[in-house]
């Protein structure tokens, strides 16, 4: 798919160039490229968004546009940018990864205040995927820590999605019991039930769906819908817990790179476009929760009502959450020590 439209565009472009006459036209209108560096599960979302934005931009400015996508683990993508990958925009799984990019002065520290809704045009949450018929009767967070239930979730050390899973579980217990100690014990019991920690969210999906390990998979809501689509509704079902975390995957312009490429206006327009009703509908169709109320209502059937708490409510902010829970010596390390 991805290659498909890139090819189409390059073929059209080369046809135009080959026909000889429109060299001048192309120059007048100009062509521009934009590099969007994103995390793994957004591949399909941005394929649709990019196609829509290219049309929108062409209509508005007459400029032909090429948008390159790069996908990978969120942390690895952030590191690639820090190490010199010249992304114009970043759209990652969690704010901490973009914080890390801002630490190397590629964008200002207050980046998250520059766009509406904490710079997250779409959100998601963490749900359960179980085998058809829900043989272990899993409906709540408390069900997945019961002995004998095998839980699949990736390693929070290497996966952004896994960190959301962990924080969702912790947040649930802390809100329910009001005690951080209980939350810690809850998470400890949860990881006792985890037989394998894959390095990324897609890896866990494969472990659960293809290799048949585990009774329940903790997954992004959008990834859960993808599993049903890919592997069949006759094999798996989604169980939405009553309470979960509001996962906010943020977007930002990489200031240093857009200045260098002269693409600031374009990059800003691209990110703002994600907030338009048209883009929000695409977001909803890709099983991400749109911010726009009208779009959310339109696709309400896909998004069961879940009581969502934000990360800031429970953990303060991403930097604190990262430091307390996931850095070396943090809580995640402690729960594995004998």
């Amino acid at each position: 798919m991805n290659l498909g439209w890139i090819k189409k565009i390059t073929i059209t472009a080369s046809l135009i160039a080959a026909s000889g006459l429109p060299g001048t036209i192309a120059e007048a209108a100009g062509t521009a490229t934009l590099l969007n560096v994103s995390y793994d599960p957004t591949r399909e979302l941005y394929q649709s968004e990019n196609a829509a934005f290219i049309q929108h931009w062409q209509k508005q400015t007459g400029q032909t546009l090429r948008i390159d996508q790069s996908h990978g683990g969120s942390g690895k993508q952030a590191r690639a940018i820090i190490d010199g990958l010249e992304a114009d925009v970043v759209t990652l799984a969690l704010a901490y990864d973009i914080d890390a990019i801002s630490d190397s002065k590629l964008l200002p520290a207050n980046w998250q205040t520059r766009l509406p809704n904490n710079s997250t045009p779409y959100t998601s949450t963490i749900v359960f995927v179980v085998r058809k018929g829900n043989p272990k009767h899993i409906t709540t967070w408390d069900d997945i820590v019961k002995p004998g239930v095998s839980v699949i979730t990736p390693n929070p050390k290497t996966s952004g999605g896994a960190r959301w899973n962990y924080l969702a579980a912790w947040g649930y217990k802390q809100k329910q019991s009001g005690s951080a100690v209980q939350a810690k014990n809850f998470v400890k019991a949860l990881y006792k039930n985890v037989p394998v920690l894959d390095t990324g969210a897609r890896g866990s999906t494969m472990t659960f769906a293809q290799r048949g390990l585990g009774d329940v998979l903790l997954a992004w809501e959008n990834e859960a819908h993808l599993i049903l689509k890919e592997f069949g509704k006759d094999k798996f079902e989604i169980v939405s817990p009553a309470i979960s975390i509001l996962a906010e995957p943020p977007v930002a312009i990489v200031d240093k790179n857009v200045t260098k490429h002269g693409t600031r206006k374009l990059a800003e327009a691209y990110l703002n476009f994600l907030y338009t009703p048209q883009a929000q509908d695409i977001i909803a169709r890709n099983s991400y929760r749109p911010r726009n109320a009208a779009s959310l209502k339109k696709y309400a059937a896909n998004f069961p009502k879940i009581k969502l708490f934000t990360l800031n409510e429970v953990f303060g902010n991403w930097r604190t959450a990262q430091k307390t829970h996931f850095n070396d010596g943090g809580v995640f390390d402690q729960i594995y020590l004998p």
Binding site: A78, I82, N327
Partner: peptide, 12 residues
């Protein structure tokens, strides 16, 4: 090698 990757993912 996984420990090395995990540390890199913490930007360490």
């Amino acid at each position: 090698p996984l420990m090395i990757m995990a540390k890199l993912d913490q930007f360490d």
